[in-house]
Amino acid sequence: MLELRLVQGSLLKKVLDAIKDLVTDANFDCSESGFSLQAMDSSHVALVALLLRSDGFEHYRCDRNLSMGMNLTNMSKMLKCAGNDDIITIKADDGGDSVTFMFESPSQDKVSDFEMKLMDIDSEHLGIPETEYHAIVKMPSAEFARICRDLSTIGDTVVISVSKDGVKFSTSGDIGSANVVCRQNNSVDNKDNETVIEMNEPVSLTFALRYLNSFTKATTLSNTVTLSMSKELPVVVEYKIAEIGHIRFYLAPKIED
């Protein structure tokens, strides 16, 4: 028996909006520690890892570990039927072939339930080791989204370079080239507006902008984003989800021939 009650149901709606274009089908894994998902995009270039910790739910009952295969397009269709202020409860029986999403309006005067069929998904689960990254950049998520969107009008790839001077985003294409440099700044009145760079050694990696743009669909989940980079490793683009967890996107770099 599984019963997870999330008071801030809009978070789940935003999570689905953030990943449904990158991943079609995925297994949601439920254990006593939390509700999680790990999935790759169809070309296996990017990986998304979601964690919603059990203590972030108002009520969290998970009698035994459960993996529920869901089509994210269909799940998103159902969650779109929840109001932004609604409380969402996810319910499933052990060994059942469906999941129920229950939506309660804040004043409790409207209660809906939507039952969705589960599917068998044969997915690979990758082990992601804890890594000390060469450079970690924390910046406003809207700024990162703006840069990715702007640069993708010029080129297909971006070189992200972190040095003591700041973080530089560079692209080039048929019509020309562009560089955006963000320097470390400290905002006295609003930590969310800060750009903070922790660097052990300079790092420069090339990525497909198409994927980074897809990741920025998570911008509504957090005011800040963290980019963790090491030489010859996938970048980690992380959005914290309120007090409850995180969504991390891993993107393999492009290597020059």
């Binding site: 790759m40 070309s43 296996h44 270039v45 990017a46 990986l47 690979e124 689960h125 990758l126 082990g127 992601i128 080791p129 790839t157 090339t206 497909a208 490793l233 996938p234 891993y250 993107l251 393999a252 770099p253 492009k254 290597i255 020059e256 021939d257």
Partner: peptide, 14 residues
């Protein structure tokens, strides 16, 4: 020219 790696080149299967 650049080559797009896959994520599976970096992480092993659990």
């Amino acid at each position: 020219a650049s080559f797009q790696n896959t994520i599976k080149m970096y992480f092993d299967e659990d």
